[in-house]
Every structure is written in C-alpha cells, then in structure tokens.
Design a protein around this nucleic acid. Sequence first.
DNA 1: AATGAATGAGAATTCATTCAT
DNA 2: AATGAATGAATTCTCATTCAT
Lengths: 190, 190, 190, 190
Amino acid sequence: MARPRSEDKRNAILEAATEVVAEQGVSAPTARIAKRAAVAEGTLFTYFENKDALLNQLYLDLKADLRGAMMNSYPSAERVPVRTRHVWEKYVDWGVAYPLKRKALNQLGVSDRISAQSREAGMLAFAQVTALMQESLAGGVLKDQPPAFVGAIMSSLAETTMDFITREPAMAERYKNAGFEAFWAAIAAR
Amino acid sequence: MARPRSEDKRNAILEAATEVVAEQGVSAPTARIAKRAAVAEGTLFTYFENKDALLNQLYLDLKADLRGAMMNSYPSAERVPVRTRHVWEKYVDWGVAYPLKRKALNQLGVSDRISAQSREAGMLAFAQVTALMQESLAGGVLKDQPPAFVGAIMSSLAETTMDFITREPAMAERYKNAGFEAFWAAIAAR
Amino acid sequence: MARPRSEDKRNAILEAATEVVAEQGVSAPTARIAKRAAVAEGTLFTYFENKDALLNQLYLDLKADLRGAMMNSYPSAERVPVRTRHVWEKYVDWGVAYPLKRKALNQLGVSDRISAQSREAGMLAFAQVTALMQESLAGGVLKDQPPAFVGAIMSSLAETTMDFITREPAMAERYKNAGFEAFWAAIAAR
Amino acid sequence: MARPRSEDKRNAILEAATEVVAEQGVSAPTARIAKRAAVAEGTLFTYFENKDALLNQLYLDLKADLRGAMMNSYPSAERVPVRTRHVWEKYVDWGVAYPLKRKALNQLGVSDRISAQSREAGMLAFAQVTALMQESLAGGVLKDQPPAFVGAIMSSLAETTMDFITREPAMAERYKNAGFEAFWAAIAAR
DNA sequence: AATGAATGAGAATTCATTCAT
DNA sequence: AATGAATGAATTCTCATTCAT
C-alpha cells in the first residue's frame, strides 16, 4: 500500500556502484554511490543491507551480465571452433563496450569483500562456457588439464587483449583476432 | 622529512607493507604497516612522504624484484626456446615462492593509487624480457603484434598458472609445464 | 495526525513500547516498537505526534496502572497498618507480576525525555497513597517530614525489595515481609 | 620519547563524560564529551577504546569515588551507630556536593552498557561498607536478611534523601537526619 | 631521527519523521 | 487510515598526517 520498492532505484544504485567502483575501487564511499544514483545516502541501505551486500550483488550481476553477453545468440549448431570464437568475441566485445563494468568486475574480483560463496556462484555461471571448450582440446597441449584451467586461460588472454584494445582502440580488430589466434593455438590440437 | 638514517628501517617498512597490502589491500592502514615493521607510526613518514609514495615505491620494488628473479642466471648463450623457458620458470617460481609479494603486486596493480609514471617505469623493467621473445615469433600467430602484447600474454598466463598452483600445490610441476606449453604454442611458429 | 481509529492499535503500540523500552531503554528505535506492535513504522506517528509524546504517555499510563493496582480492593474500612500493608503488597506484587512494566517505568523515570509536567502528573497519582500514610507517623521518626518524602521512601524500599525478589524468586515472601517490616519500623511510632 | 599520554586529558574526558552523561544519559554523543573536555573527537579514542569502555570506566571511577568519600576519616574505633551514621552522612554529603556525579552514576546504573563485570566490581567496593552494618542488626527486623539487602536499603534511602535535599536545599540537614533516623529505625534492634 | 599522542575529515550506518501510494 | 520507502542529520569510530617531546 505504501510506495513500492522501486526496481529502477535499485538498478540505479547498482549502475552507480559500477561506475564508482570502476573509478575508485571497492573503498569508494557509499555516499558517493548514492549521490551518483541520485538517491539519499540512507536509501542505499533500504535496497542493500550493507556495503558488502551491495558489492557482492554487483559482482554477481556483472558476472551474469558477462555470461549473458557470451551466450547471446550462441551458435549451438556450429562446430567447436566457431562456437569458441563466438564466445571469445562476445567476451572481448563486452569488455570493450562496457569498460566500466569490466573495471568494476576486476576491482571486485581482487577484493576480499567478495565472499567465497559469491565467487563460487560467479564461477558456476562460467562452467557451461568452459565445458564446451573441452572438446577442442583433444590433441592440444592442455588436453590433460582441468576445464577450469582452460577457462582461466581464456579469461586472462581476453583481459590482456582488452587492455590493449583500450589503449589502442584503432587496433581493436587486430588485437581481437591476434588474441584469439593465440588462445586457439594454445588450446587446440595441431 | 629530514634525511632518514637507516636503510634497514626503510626495508623493514617496505617488507611490512608487502605483507600487509597482500593481506588487506591498499587500504590497509599505515599504522598497521608501521607496527609490522616495528617502527613508530610517524617514522614511516620520514622514509616516505606519504602513503602513496610508499605504495608506488613498493610497486616499483616488487616489479624490480620480479625482474631480477627472471634475469638471474639468464642463459644468454642458449637458443630462444631455452631462454624463454628460463624466464617463464623463474617468473612462476618467484610467484610460488613469494606469494605475498605476488599478491601485493597484484593489489597494487589494480589500485588507482599507482601513478601512470610508476606503471610505465614498471613496464620498462620488462622491456628487456619481452624484447627477447620477439625472436620466437617469426612464424607465429603473433608475429605482427607489439612486444608488449606478447609480454602481457606471458604475464597473464603465468598468473593463471600460479593461481592454479597455489590452489593445488601438489600439481605445481604439471601446471608449470602445461602453462608453458600453452604459452609457447600461442607465440611460437609452427 | 488525523483522528486515529483503533483503540486496539494504540494499546498495542503502548504495550510494545513497554517491552521494548524495558529491554533497550528509551533509545530503542520507534521502528522496533512499531514492529513489535505489528503496525507500520509510520502508523505509530498517527497515534503519537512523536517519540517523546509516546514516551510521556507511556510513563503516565504505567504510573496510573501501578496506582490502579495499589488501590484495587483497597480496604478503606480497616485501620492504618492494614491499609498500609495492603498498599505495600500490591505495589510489590505489581512489580513482580509485571517486570517489564516496572523496568520500563524505571527507564522512563531516569530519562530526560519525560517532561516535568509528566512527572508532576505522575506524582499526583500517588498523592492519595502517601496521604494515608501520614496517619501512621504520629509518633514516628518521620512525623515532621512531608508526605511525599514518606511516599518516596516506600517507593524506594519497595523497589529494593523487588530487585531482590527478582534475583531470588524463591525468597519472594521473605523479602516482601522483611521489606515491609523495615518500612513500617522506619515510619511508625514505637 | 613522544608526547606522553596525559593523565590530565584522561581526567578531563572522564569529568566531561560525567557532566554530559548526567545531562543527557548514556546516549550522549562522544563528540559532545570530547568537546566539553576540550579535546578532539578522535582523542577520546586514544584514551578509551570505545564508548562502552569509557562508560564502564566512568562507572567504576564514580563508584570508587563514592566509596572513598564514605570511607574517608572512617571512625573505626567508634561503636556501630557512630560508624553507620558516618557512612550515611558521607554518602549523602557526596551526592549533594556532586549532583552531576550522582546523576551520572544513576544513569550508568540503569544502562545496559555497563557490563556485569563492572557491576560486580562496583559492588565489591561496597562490600566492606555493608559488612559493617551487619553488626547493627542483631535484634532488628532485618536480622535474617543478607547484608546486600541492608546495603541496598541504605542506598535507596540515601538516594531518596538526596532527591529531596536537591529539591529543597534549605532543608538539607533536616532531611539528612530524618533519612538516617528512618534507616536506623529500619535496621536496628529496638 | 624517532616516537606516538593529537587532530579532524571522512566512513558506514542508524533512525525519527515525512510523504507518496 | 495505513503502509513502508525515502530522507539526511547524527553517530561512533578510523586513519593519514602533523607535531610536541
């Protein structure tokens, strides 16, 4: 009967947190997040119990967002190399298109405020992605390593690729291709 | 602010900072660093103008330390694959041997308190390392990419490798080899 | 602010306030009182203009409640010692039967949020009680002191008695008697 | 070698706390206490770990202060009635001379921020006082009650006496005597 | 130079009260 | 009338830095 809790406001806070955490890291003041979201300082705490809850939720949301991007229009019917490339491209495109999301996600990833539980939940979102890569490994150098290792390698190569694209946007396509080639060479049979 | 006397004390502060930053990130209180170094809170500021100066110095020191490890007993006379493998092994060994240094360096790397200048200086330390890799690339997929890109790829793959070794120390050798194989496959001619 | 409808709700708030103030003192949040009363946070303010108004009303209500207990089935026809004992017993019984009311009343009594006016009104409720005691004093040590003094003495001895009964409920009767004997000895002629 | 912690400053904080707690209760802001003590807000926390620590220390100090007053120039050689009267007078005089200390002590006494441990320590300070009264009880109405009960009765009667003296200072001597007479009548043999 | 007490500007929350629904 | 989201001032405590000793 009272004013309902606004999904918009909640999103505004999460978006503001994305920007502010990207800029200042997890030690960014909640007051600044609230201000950026155009809500009162106290309002933040009606949507999130405390700062840690907000940070963990943001981490989960960003992970889910990234996963959504990678799985969007996923070409299930195609062969492994095509599918792998699709995932790679979507990953890199996401990071390039949303540099603040990427930066925030990285800040959160190294922070000790993200709980083990959140990390696990975040990883789960990628299980599917990494699973598919196993198929590529048959004759590759990583054929005996765990899927998570391959997934982590993709992640780290994609991050490196994005770093360079960010610094030299004009070279985006070149880096994106080169990065994938390196990744594919690293995991595929020869 | 006056000329500090003891090199020992300065080193104690830097070592303490390594530990504390590894544990708590860059927002760790200077008081805690001072305590761990067994000096007074104020003493820290006679050796470093302010917290940022300490953090940036630590970043540079750790980068130099890592570089030193990689270049130690560098087999200049050997052929490229051997030299590359040497660098890879030393890198990974360093991270595994000094997990706090590694953690601290990563915390500093994502912090916005490290100046662009420090970052540049840090990279310089690696220029030599990456330069040598160019030789490997002749026929590889990355033959047209800048040396720094290849260096960054080595870095990120080594970090990923260390992450997995940290989680499964018993598998250290396996991951170290697998990581290198992947790296080599990624950059070398075929 | 408009005329509230439900007497039940008002009572629920006062009862909830009794419990919560007993437990946490006058600084207990209004939100907690509202929750305990099973009404919305805002509803509290349609029944009481603000927190102070609620607190003062509660103080008055509890004083009146206590007075009602003491005067219930008051043996007007009996002689002074009997009537005095009746008052004493009802007082102590009330405090033992309703420890939360007693605790809340004490918390309110020492709070600076209870206005002088409320305190005066609260005392008035006891005037009748203390008046009757004057008759006992003829030859006693307090024969020249104001009635309020004797009333206050009864109050303080009763409180002390209740404290001990609360701590050792098995000794309730003994303390109740001993307390009364002490009180009677203090005020009566010998 | 650095500026030593100042006993004066510590005392200033405790005295300021006495005044402020007397006026506003235990919910008085630490900032106000600091201001009254003429120190910075943060300084308070170099002398007391947190607000509770300050409050508990103040409670203990005030209890000790009161005990000191009662035991000052205690006439050990005199007979029980004289010694009892001495304690009574010193108690009442203390409360009348230091109304803020008395008020603060009462506020602290009803607060749930005072730990059970502090309360116990506070009571210990009074054990000696109450012990001596036992001798008076031989033939009195309270001869079978625990010493603490008698001590509590003295306390409550003294408090009541002080209340009335505070309201009518001109009647101080009269109330002081009357209060003692009542107390003595309550506990002594007849 | 070394010490650590002193400082006061934040930081994360809390909470009485208002107000849109 | 009832609800509970929204507000922002107030609160406790932290911390980089200064400065008296």
